[in-house]
Design a protein around this nucleic acid. Structure first.
Lengths: 365, 365
DNA sequence: CGTCATTAATAATGCGCATCATCTTGTTGA
DNA sequence: TCAACAAGATGATGCGCATTATTAATGACG
């Protein structure tokens, strides 16, 4: 026989007070001038300790309280090919933070994937309600859904910089622009001048920032920015050869291993002939693959920071209900940009000496 | 202003019926002789479709219903060193299954880690309540907590075989014994006779099964089973050399890379001098490390199967409340043992010819 | 024509908690 | 002596839903 769980009423009975009193002690505050004497307060606390009482989250939530559950919603299918390479590190950080905060994590896996991305349907939206707030991962968020979140004043935090959307969304992102800029500097310091950018064109924030960082630094250095699309690896390798790049910076979305293979296949050794700096880690590292130079994204820290931020928003919201939670938190905390760290791998080498004619040098400043 | 969420009452109003009727239609059943005409049924369904109603999980749960949330509880700290290598694959499988089932996953990260393992304190236990059921990962489960789960008839499924605990616990595990046995056969087929077992002694199920598989097969082959403790890598390497093993089967808990390094350092080349078969994948693969031969554990499938099983238990439980859920599900489904798949890596080679004296051959049958 | 099943739906209740409106009991000031 | 007031605590209410008890309507049958 499943013995009934302990409720506030039980605690109240033991302490010789009313259920309401127990509730007040627990949320130790006086929402409307209610006060509890230190004596009864202790009595209640003792009763709680003895009975081992712990609140029922469902009931708490239903009554408008907080559940200490924070949600994680991922746009895009979380595991495209069964490799948890991309979202995994974020989750690691998230869970660490969750443990520190003493909250549980709710993964919204119930939302079916349509057209390769998850949707926040009305159905799904309602389910967010169990959680006090929600982390949003992925690029392909939907305007409508977003608006709904804002309208209902539901606490949320994006993982990944959000620039275009009015610039007022809470997020924890990384500074792709600066990091990319640094890679160009690293190459330039080793004598490279013909530095190409290889990667998919896109309007997502990471791509925009990487491109901007690349373009800007190349310009500052008086070098010509050149871009190579990265949909067909073989074609890209050919173009890299044709352009006589001695170095490339590569967006890690499409497997850089394949690109390197294609380059080697074409007679271009990495890094002897062509240095390759990765603008982030490979999404799906090949076992026994190369140790890439470039920079790495502090994904764990992003996850952790995002959760801390979300937690702050939730409590700020609860503290001063009615007004936007965001209003309670200072701007520099609401939108955080973390630094990437450079990685010394095995794919960076000094610029090779020019083969014959020197007319293929890049133009000077 | 946060517009109120749509409730059953709203739907009821639109359909011109009572809230109760809506509830009945949704749980389309008649718990106590209640019946709804097809006509009103349709009217309610239409209203639901129009309003986009979706149940509030918290309220559902409070009222004794199901939330479509399944929990995951991990004993042991989930991420000992920041590498999600061990639990990650399980979660991948779990999430895939969750997506298929249309349920959300609740990670119980709120339970603090004490003595290197998570505890299901009363506090934590109460929080399980939000989920309809729970997956349990890890070896170090606590008898008391387990008993509590059984007492309260809470649906749960272990990931990993459970033998000692009465043998009546629902689990999804892998057949370590058979898989280990196969590895010995592989080595024997290549002429190895001096085959050692290297790994920590322990009473956990995986170790027991591995040892049993090894011991049994060695005996069948007429070979002598020899065990090497694996706490100090250097010492283990020395002993492996002293014992003149030409092959070892190694439990993957402690980094096999270090062991291989120690062997090489001692002049024993892998696999030329010593073949190494891993009884599972390395928990923390070194980037650019070896491709280990041995077998691999279908962790994703384990996760997925476990969640499917849990889902079955939950629904079986709801269907016939009062009696144990387990009673509703046939035994072969309640306790599943999956097969490991052999891995062809680079650490398996034929038995090397004997150096000089032949008296170090293992004794025959 | 009245009684009793049968069907179809509703009212009422409680899950466990947070919160507001009230109530009781001292204490103070005039 | 009595109003005025504060401190300390309680009763009542509702969150949204599942479920039981109950009512209303309809037909069957003697």
């Amino acid at each position: 026989m499943p013995r009934r769980r302990i409720t506030q009423a039980d605690v109240a009975a033991m302490a010789g007070v009313s259920q309401a009193t127990v509730s007040f002690v627990l949320n130790d505050s006086n929402p409307s001038g209610v006060r509890i004497s230190e004596e009864t307060r202790q009595r209640v606390l003792d009763a709680i300790r003895i009975t081992g009482y712990s609140a029922n989250p469902a009931a708490q939530r239903l009554a408008g309280g907080l559940t200490q559950i924070l949600g994680v919603f991922t746009y895009e299918a979380t595991f495209p090919q069964g490799g948890r390479d991309f979202y995994g590190p974020f989750l690691v950080g998230i869970e660490h933070a969750a443990e520190k905060l003493g909250v549980d994590i709710l993964l919204f896996t119930s939302a079916r994937v349509e057209d390769g991305r998850r949707r926040l349907t009305r159905e799904g939206w309602q389910r967010l309600g169990v959680a006090d707030g929600c982390l949003l991962l992925g690029q392909q968020e939907d305007r409508g859904e977003l608006q709904h979140l804002l309208d209902t004043n539901y606490p949320f935090v994006f993982i990944g910089k959000r620039g275009s959307d009015g610039g007022r969304l809470p997020y924890v992102g990384v500074d792709y622009a600066t990091a990319t800029s640094r890679q160009v500097e690293r190459l330039a310091a080793l004598g490279h001048t013909r530095i190409g950018y290889v990667g998919p064109r896109g309007t997502d924030q990471p791509t925009l920032d990487r491109v901007e960082g690349y373009r800007l630094t190349m310009k500052q250095r008086g070098l010509t920015a050149r871009f190579v699309e990265l949909d067909d690896v073989a074609a890209a390798a050919t173009e890299i050869g044709d352009q006589r790049f001695t170095a490339i910076v590569v967006a890690p979305e499409n497997s850089p291993e394949e690109l390197a293979d294609a380059l080697e296949h074409r007679g271009l050794r990495v890094p002897v002939d062509v240095s390759v700096l990765l603008l982030g880690q490979p999404h799906r590292p090949r076992p026994g693959g190369r140790r890439w130079s470039g920079f790495s994204i502090p994904r764990e820290e992003m996850g952790a920071r995002a959760l801390y931020l979300l937690s702050r928003l939730v409590t700020a919201d609860a503290g001063q209900a009615g007004s936007r939670a965001a209003a309670q938190v200072p701007d520099d905390e609401l939108r955080q940009l973390l630094e990437c760290v450079d990685v010394d791998g095995a794919t960076l080498a000094p610029c090779p000496p020019e083969p014959t004619g020197s007319h293929d040098r890049t133009e000077p400043a």
